[in-house]
């Protein structure tokens, strides 16, 4: 019996790497080529620049039936929005909202305007502009009695095999990071730079769009934008990246 247990223990240890130790975590930035890094590092060549400018315009524009701008209530984003993105998804009421949903809540409730659609140019621009104010700050998601059930649900989804190819997120991003998937290095899946400018998309995109891409890659049915499952997964990923620095807007291949 002991031999069997030992055998099983050795077997599991060598086939499943499990969670990445905190000190070994690396941003997707570190898996990129030199040119892509340089593109992200230089504010004037970062292709997300245009989204940031659009975001700033939207921030200052009076809108909706209330006729108020974000700036009318929040003032200078560099001050009022500093550190905010590092705390999202955050529990509002009884459930976690991601940053896009939080911004849309202000659109609807405070500006009395229609919510922006997921992946619309406006929502991506405003989200990038708000998140930019946290660049360089450590991700600050805490596991406590309120957040833990949602973090755990996100983790369960992350570790569950799915799709026709029957792959779990963890099998690539925890167990095989750094290896090559058809020539592409597998990163650790830290959501440090969202919304990102992705070269493959030739456009800005949200974290949810990126997650959907990975689900579709496993031939799984992706969860809907803004669904509880998606937000829980985002929350788990942000908690998993706690302490890592935000780089929004990042560039990714």
């Amino acid at each position: 019996m002991r031999a069997a247990a030992l055998f099983l223990a050795a077997f599991c240890a060598c086939t499943q790497a499990g969670e990445i130790p905190l000190a070994e975590r690396r941003s997707g930035y570190e898996f990129m080529g030199r040119e892509t890094r340089a593109m992200q590092d230089d504010d004037t060549t970062n292709p997300a620049l245009f989204a940031l400018l659009d975001g700033e315009t939207l921030w200052n524009r009076a809108d909706g039936a209330a006729g108020r701008a974000c700036a009318a209530c929040h003032g200078d984003a560099a001050q009022s929005m500093k550190g905010v993105a590092a705390r999202y998804p955050a529990i509002v009421g009884a459930k976690p909202l991601n940053l896009e949903q939080r911004i849309n809540a202000c659109r609807v409730e405070k500006q009395r305007a229609a919510a922006f659609a997921y992946e619309s140019k406006e929502l991506l621009a405003l989200t990038a502009y708000v998140a930019r104010q946290s660049r360089g700050l450590p991700i600050a998601i805490e596991a406590n009695d309120t957040t833990r059930p949602f973090i755990d649900a996100g983790r369960a989804l992350y570790e569950r095999r799915q799709g026709q190819l029957n792959l779990a997120c963890s099998q690539c991003h925890d167990d095989n990071w750094g290896r090559s998937l058809a020539g592409t290095p597998i990163p650790q899946a830290h959501p440090t730079g969202y919304p990102i400018y992705r070269l493959e998309w030739q456009a800005m995109g949200s974290l949810e769009r990126r997650l959907r891409n990975c689900m579709i890659g496993a031939r799984a049915e992706p969860y809907a934008y803004g669904s509880p499952e998606m937000v829980e997964l985002e929350l788990y990923l942000m908690w998993r990246a706690r302490g890592m620095k935000l780089e929004t807007p990042a560039v990714r291949p």
Binding site: T15, Q162, Q164, C172, R219, A220, P222
Partner: peptide
């Protein structure tokens, strides 16, 4: 294993 089963349709979750 991470290798997909190429000739199996049961026991899968959320197949597109």
């Amino acid at each position: 294993t991470i290798m997909p089963a190429y000739y199996k349709t049961d026991g899968l979750t959320r197949v597109a």
